[in-house]
Nucleic acid binder design. Structure first.
Lengths: 219, 219
DNA sequence: GTCTATATGAAGATAGAC
DNA sequence: GTCTATCTTCATATAGAC
């Protein structure tokens, strides 16, 4: 073991302890909140997973609700990027929609907890994310809706109700994270067939969206 | 007011008080559990909505968990009937799938609380409905899957992964109950355009399913 | 800045009168 | 069978030593 790092180490960059602690707390909180939502989560459990005393959580975040809000903020921020990357007028709808579906399904698989926390927040009536839903999300859906309409106008796909198409895509993809337990139970999974399940899900959802919207194969 | 009913009334049919009380408790419990799931629900709140003292809930149902289980049982029982009515080999898939989608969307609109309670239970990891998922539901999906495959074999629709098709249908329809708050926020609803929203949802989901599965119009 | 030990309040459950 | 009053438990939050 190289112990020289002790000597070459910076004399504690300001906020480095804070940054590591808050990062550990946020990661632990995402895991715990994803299991049973806000109410079921216990501050003591989050503290234990973060490897810190319970009092530190209150020191850094004040209340349970503010910690939960910080986790939600994290999730929502990353949420919008995938859509902005794929749903752009320059792409052909075949590429855009299949790419978006694939990205959403991959995210549901890699980071199911984030989707579940968001789902739980909506089920509760969205007390905390309501401003986001009515503001930023609504504007994004309107903008993406105009992209869809431009594709329809160019004859690249059928006319559809754009917002409802997004509701459908979100529902079909996020169900693999949110209701994962149901899917495993019905398919009788022991975890061994994960790759086939993912492939079948991708094929099914992509086909429903592309053929369902009458998207012509890209030239 | 006709007070003669006091005299003509039966001398209290056995169990009628019990039946009315348990029905009131179950109805109140479904409303309260649908708002924030098991953990967030308060026995005092259910009692208040049922118009009964809190102790009566414990008298009739023992614990909060058993009351919750009774509500879930109610929901799950009604759950399977719609599927059994529509997904049968005698029907043409165009009629069967569109009828099933319409029934699920109508249910999501009329009884959104039931869908939300089930969603919350799945999000928690399905501690109580797991036996149902692995047993009855799994068998039903397998049976309905054979119906789908028979339609494909007869050339009435494309070959699809039947279980994933059902996951997609459930997701797209139940999202209108579970994430109702998000849909209203994005569409900017004040409750005035409910009928148009329902019509657009039905049209969009039906088109995605029928065209997505390559179902030919019924002869 | 960090953590132990404790206060405070709330919710599920029950004892016991009616 | 019904309900009031109370017990018990436990989770959030904080006070105060280090």
């Amino acid at each position: 073991m190289d112990t020289s790092a002790i000597f070459t180490q910076e004399p504690s960059e300001p906020g480095s302890v804070r940054r590591e602690a808050t990062a550990a707390i946020l990661a632990a909180a995402e895991r715990v909140f994803s299991r049973g939502g806000f109410e079921a989560a216990r501050m003591a459990e989050i503290a234990a997973e973060a490897g810190l005393p319970k009092a530190n959580l209150h020191y850094y975040f004040g209340t349970k609700e503010r910690l939960y809000a910080a986790v939600l903020e994290d999730i929502v921020t990353q949420w919008l990027d995938a859509a902005a990357e794929w749903i752009v007028p320059e792409r052909h709808p075949a590429e855009a929609l299949s790419g978006y579906v694939r990205a959403k399904l991959a995210d549901a698989r890699v980071r199911p907890g984030a989707s579940r926390i968001f789902a739980g927040e909506l089920l509760r009536g969205a007390p905390l994310v309501m401003p986001f839903l009515r503001g930023e999300l609504r504007r994004r859906v309107e903008a993406m809706g105009r992209v869809i309409e431009s594709w329809s106008a160019r004859g690249l796909m059928d006319k559809v109700a754009p917002a409802h198409l997004f509701f459908a895509i979100w529902a079909m993809t996020q169900t693999y994270a949110d209701f994962d337990v149901q899917i495993r139970a019905v398919l009788g999974e022991d975890g061994a067939h994960e790759d086939e399940t993912f492939a079948a899900a991708t094929a099914t959802v992509t086909a429903l969206v592309l053929k369902g919207c009458g998207v012509h194969a890209a030239a």
